[in-house]
Design a protein around this nucleic acid. Structure first.
Lengths: 201, 201
DNA sequence: CCTGACTCTTAAACTAGTTTAAGGGTATTT
DNA sequence: AAATACCCTTAAACTAGTTTAAGAGTCAGG
């Protein structure tokens, strides 16, 4: 497939890589031949528990969530992925074992996906893809470590304030139940926190 | 510096890389010229809050912890690093900004450290280092995500049981106050959990 | 050998967060 | 247009986890 300026999804990805080590012409061509565009409907899944996670996905537009479901049926949100975010279940993707989580679209979304074998091909043949994905994963690591720190040291109210700072647009884009699930509290208690914050912001 | 079989610290690192993409002779030589051995006393620091984290460290023996200190002076353990673990404050290391955390030896430890510029040199000149560190960071990411899931979905008792599975040797090697700090609970409550577990294991 | 600094435990009083239940609002489906 | 499902809030009763305090055990240092 030839590159052209009308291929807006792919140009979003190429621009994304400009934040790291920008791609050469040949590397861009490899992107276009190994990434596949996909539109996901609201409530559509790109991964279900029990399946092997076959793709590393880049979100061009929309919003997805990754979550685990516990024995009692409750959902626990591990990640929201919006424009220019990556999302995959790393544990399942590399081990090729069944995943413990779901990845579901919260809004209608456009994504670009690469399959496991194709990503390995890029890693093997282009130093730069190993490097750029190293950096992408490092940044995810930093985010996760901050979140762990919040979880072990901060109250629910502090965690919510931090969430608002980090994702200012999300409370308008998704139900509060989803945010409560991300913070590790009940929707009822989040409602109380929000009421308290109005009185003393 | 020439490689020889007496250099036990470095051979531990070379063996470690055999779990990923094993190193060539030349790459091993680069290790020996860019990693520096260090012995750290119990309670010795390799990073203090406010300093820039200058090293990526590989633990050959002993045990270190990374922790943040909150406004009230309480410590919150983010990571324990034992034999064959890596430890660094990624956020500070790559941004070269002051760190928010401490890294301190819990036991007398032997480590191998590489400086920021030297690691960039290895990344630039050897595809394999970018690749191996990508994999190392991915595994850390998987660990952190599991820990986040525990934090948002499981009770303190469940988290402690999971901790025992993951680090069976640690309760013998370090004070329980350290474990409580890692789990995000008070030492008093951990004590209660331990009592309960004896009665109904 | 003694002292002081940590560590672990127990227990009572407290607080942060959950559960259960109910009511009203707003989309989405039929 | 009605019906259903979902979402948000409130409140009362409950439970998980914290705080404060006190006592006993253990270890390193003078």
């Amino acid at each position: 497939m030839a590159l052209n300026s009308e291929n807006t999804l792919l140009t979003a990805l190429i621009n994304h890589f400009k934040n790291y080590f920008p791609l050469t012409g040949k590397e861009k061509e490899e992107l276009s031949s190994h990434f596949r565009e996909r539109k996901i409907k609201r409530r559509g899944f790109i991964l279900q528990q029990g399946d092997v996670c076959k793709h590393f996905s880049f979100v061009v537009s929309g919003c997805l969530k990754m979550y685990a479901v516990d024995q009692t049926g409750k959902e626990h949100n591990l990640q929201f992925a919006m424009e220019n975010d990556w999302i995959t279940d790393l544990a399942s993707f590399y081990s090729e074992k069944p995943s413990m989580v779901y990845i579901e679209a919260i809004e209608p979304s456009s994504i670009l996906q690469i399959e496991h074998a194709d990503l390995l091909y890029l890693y093997t043949n282009y130093h730069k893809f190993d490097r750029n994905f190293r950096i992408i994963v490092e940044q995810r690591c930093i985010e996760l470590q901050n979140r762990v720190l919040q979880n072990i040291s901060a109250s629910a109210e502090e965690r919510y304030r931090y969430f608002l700072q980090q994702y200012p647009t999300l409370p308008n884009r998704l139900p509060h139940t989803q945010i409560a699930s991300y913070l590790g509290i009940t929707p009822e208690f989040l409602s109380k926190i929000r009421k308290d914050l109005i009185n003393k912001p």
